[in-house]
Design a protein around this nucleic acid. Structure first.
Length: 839
DNA sequence: TCTTCCCGCCAAGCA
DNA sequence: TGCTTGGCGGGAAGA
């Protein structure tokens, strides 16, 4: 799989090395062995050289088969598979290859082009195929059939060895329901050879997974359904035969990392079953995948940009080696869906599965479909997390639970993440808790409250609070050029966090949040909010934002920030930065001053939130935080190196106080956030510039130059391009830096949101904004004073934290380099990915 | 003992 | 008719 993901050159080289030389070429083995003198020693040697049963397994064979071809071949890359050649290469009979290609063909990974010849398509269309299968499975009511069979579990033995009860199986007339409309779908014409083909069986098998809520299918149930559909006499022999075939299919699907072997323990004992671990939720909103951060552990991704589908693939490639506890997910969605609906509702609470031995909930990632992921930053965070467990523990002690309301319409994951298996995102905790700790410490040390726009968050109203904007205190990864990933984590849950009572409280809270989010009322509110948003801005603007290649959000669970320092609170209280929302939320300011932290957490709108006095890090956990449950989610802004930035990328912390980032109207020149300038993914290890001091004096008065509140970056050689002012909740067009904004909103708020969500809610940043257009950015040295923080937590891991996987090893670099050509044109790649929305 | 699935026979399908 | 394709089940390795 690694080779598959690598460049063709590497593949060729590996091939030359004989990587694919059949390890089980029994002909050779036999020949060699037979050349020996017949004797005990020769027999022993023969036995030793004889490949074991496992070595000859179909699964292993399939893996070798898949390794021959790229998972995502270029559109111009036409790969033809010669069955004879493959069989010889792998040292197996052609019959075995048939088994593999049949299953692969069922998923449209290959297609038969001629006799003995197949065409390799890769996984490009896999999501679509799965989506279709899911739809077909739903149409065939497989879920009901499985439920019915499971309900009739006590009759299973009777079924296996005798005539099944009539009521336990579909009526023969109902077989018409199994008449698939699509050519490649199984037909109900009974007992034809095609009906029993492995190809059709494979599709049906996959359907069972896709329609299953638990995503677990026992072999007996699957075999039972298949027998019924084929109208075979359900005797034991048929049952065994079906199970054999299902094993064949399962082996291939396992090699594809779509399923994995599990056991279901029932009253009658353990039953072999398989669990779907591939992408799920292929609806219009996109799909999710797992094991995201394992990519980093495996050092597979480096800082290379991957499409979501590539990510899924690579993630799946390491799946067999992954531990269950480290699974995580990525939820991919369309920007349009995200922008319009503000949420990604494909996660069904019904799919929740309590994590075995670990009830720690987490949230899935959410990225735009077809977008590019900067894995390196996330991976670096993950490493940091691993390396700093102690800090994490200390952090957890003080962390608070984010309220359910903290779920941005575009970020409903904390809700679902409570116990939904498909929302489980250990990454959020395992990966970011540590880094977040560091960042939180960083922010605290720098006089920041550790919450992005925490003061900006307002509880103006339920509707307003649901406006898509940066989550307070949450990490935001921003890639202005193509997409935006907003990272946030729900650190609330987690067995190790906090006291038992506190944990329980948090758990219940999260559960309540989950329920709340799923309730119609919430959805209604979201709809109202969206409606309001729609009314607030011209349709043209909305449309442009919806369809422009704007940022997306990668949402990951984050642990709540427990750290709020005096400086930050002070800054909040004296915030001179008036968020854009203040313009229309001004009337609510007085009330907001008294708003509890909980309310704040519920608010997603940047506002005068800062009016609420922020407690210190020491106070917050023990006092308000308990009741407020304000989410302290870390946010990062990852700025992909725009044109003119010499390939440097900027990782910005979104957790600075608004005051620090809020420029006065007409004076919005620079960045006032903690940031790290990173080389572009193609440049390898990156910490180049790092501005630890982000503390912003609360005294920064509106209208003053941002020298005190802004962090500027000096980028030699960058020239004096337009200024890029970025803040967790505010971003200003470079043009605004030098010229007073004529936009009333700008003047009123003095801050602009870099986040598409924020911009959306604020109606300020337009897609065509130079900021989005990747204007050259000039950064000057930060001039902010040294931060004042109550907790002087050392963040000694910054370097490690921000080190990209690209610096991890040559293989990674090589791969990244090799993939550069493939990813050179992100736009091109994106164009190749059909919009799910269109579909 | 049960699960898993390799192995190859042999028949359907096709040119 | 010959070749491709793949259903099928015996039986053995492995759990």
């Amino acid at each position: 799989m690694l080779i598959s993901a690598a460049s063709p050159d590497i593949r060729d080289r590996e091939k030359k090395k004989g990587l694919f030389r059949p390890i089980e070429n029994k002909d050779n083995v036999f020949t060699d062995s037979l050349q020996l003198d017949v004797g005990d020693s020769a027999v022993d040697d023969f036995e030793k050289q004889r490949p074991s049963r496992k070595q000859k397994s179909l699964g292993l064979l399939c893996q070798k088969f898949l390794a021959r071809y790229p998972s995502y071949p270029l559109s111009t890359e036409k790969t033809t598979i010669s069955l004879d050649e493959v069989a010889v290469s792998l040292g197996v009979e052609r019959r075995r290859i048939y088994d593999i290609v049949n299953v692969l063909e069922s998923l449209h990974l290959v297609s038969r082009v001629a006799k003995n010849q197949y065409g390799w398509h890769g996984r490009h269309s896999l999501p679509k195929t799965l989506r279709n299968l899911q739809r077909l499975g739903e149409e065939q009511k497989y879920e009901e059939q499985m439920a019915h069979l499971q309900q009739k579990e006590l009759d299973l033995m009777d079924y296996k060895f005798g005539e099944p009860k009539k009521d336990g199986y579909p009526d023969p007339q109902d077989q018409q329901l199994l008449d698939f409309s699509e050519p490649d779908c199984p037909s109900s014409s009974a007992n034809s050879r095609k009906d029993k083909s492995l190809r059709i069986m494979s599709q049906k098998f996959v359907m069972l997974f896709l329609v299953s809520k638990t995503k677990i299918v026992t072999l007996d149930v699957a075999a039972k359904i298949l027998i019924e559909e084929s109208q075979d006499t359900p005797d034991h022999s048929k049952f065994k035969t079906k199970v054999r075939r299902l094993y064949d299919i399962a082996n291939v699907l396992t090699s594809l990392a779509l399923i994995k072997k599990v056991h279901v323990t029932e009253e009658r004992g353990r039953k072999p079953a398989f669990k779907w671990i591939g992408p799920v939720d292929f609806g219009s909103n996109g799909y999710k995948c797992r094991n995201f951060m394992k990519l980093e552990q495996k050092r597979l991704l480096s800082s290379t940009y991957f499409t979501d589908e590539e990510l899924v693939d690579v993630s799946a490639s390491v799946l067999p080696e992954l531990k269950r506890e480290t699974y995580s997910e990525i939820q991919v969605c369309e920007k349009q869906k995200l922008a319009r609906h503000g949420s990604f509702n494909t996660v069904q609470t019904s799919e929740r599965i309590q994590r075995k031995g670990n009830s720690e909930p987490s949230s899935p990632f959410r990225v735009k479909r077809g977008s590019f992921l900067e894995i390196g930053s996330l991976a670096a965070i993950y490493r940091q997390k691993i390396e700093d467990n102690s800090k994490e523990k200390a952090f957890k002690r003080n962390r608070v639970m984010p309220p359910s309301s903290s779920l941005d319409p575009a970020a409903p994951f904390p809700v679902h993440s409570v116990d939904s298996e498909y929302c489980i995102n250990p990454l959020a905790h395992q990966v970011f808790s540590g880094p977040q700790t560091d960042l939180q410490s960083f922010f605290v040390q720098n006089g920041l409250n550790g919450q992005v726009g925490g003061s900006l968050a307002s509880t103006a109203s339920d509707v307003e609070s649901l406006k898509p904007t940066l989550l307070s205190g949450q990490p935001l990864l921003y890639v202005p050029s193509t997409s935006l990933f907003m990272l946030y984590g729900s650190l609330q849950e987690g067995p190790s966090s906090g006291s038992g009572s506190e944990k329980d409280s948090r758990s219940s809270e999260v559960s309540a949040a989950a329920e709340l989010s799923s309730t119609p009322s919430v959805q209604k509110r979201l709809g109202e909010e969206r409606k309001l948003q729609g009314e607030e801005e011209p349709a043209t603007k909305r449309q442009s934002r919806d369809y422009e290649d704007g940022p997306l959000f990668l949402v990951v669970p984050k642990k709540p920030s427990e750290s709020t320092d005096i400086a930050s609170s002070k800054t909040v209280g004296n915030r001179e930065c008036v968020p854009l929302e203040d313009v229309h939320l001004n009337s609510q300011l007085p009330a907001e001053k008294e708003v509890s932290g909980k309310d704040m957490a519920n608010s997603f709108v940047s506002s005068k939130r800062g009016n609420t006095p922020r407690i210190t890090e020491d106070e917050k956990p023990s006092k308000e935080n308990e009741g407020t449950k304000e989410p302290s989610l870390l946010q990062y802004l990852y700025v992909q190196s725009p044109a003119g930035l010499n390939g440097f990328s900027v990782l910005l912390s979104g957790s600075q106080t608004p005051s620090a980032v809020a420029p006065s109207s007409g004076q919005l020149p620079s960045l006032s956030v903690p940031c790290i300038v990173l080389p572009s993914p193609t440049l390898g290890p990156f910490p180049v510039l790092y501005s630890p001091t982000m503390a912003q004096p609360a005294s920064s008065a509106p209208g003053t130059l941002p020298n005190t509140g802004s962090v500027n970056f000096g980028m030699p050689g960058l020239g004096s391009a337009a200024h890029l002012l970025i803040s967790p909740a505010a971003m200003v067009n470079p043009k605004s830096a030098t010229l007073p904004s004529t936009d009333p909103q700008l003047q009123g708020s003095g801050s602009l949101s870099l986040s598409p969500m924020v911009s959306k809610s604020h109606n300020i940043i337009q897609p065509e904004s130079p900021v989005y257009g990747g204007h050259p950015v000039s950064m000057v040295k930060q001039q902010s004073p040294a931060p004042v923080t109550p907790t002087s937590i050392q963040h000694t891991h910054h370097e490690t934290f921000f080190k990209t996987p690209g610096s991890l090893g040559d293989p990674v670099l090589r791969r990244r380099e090799s993939k550069q050509s493939r990813n050179t044109s992100s736009a091109q790649r994106r164009l190749e990915i059909p919009s799910s929305g269109a579909e």
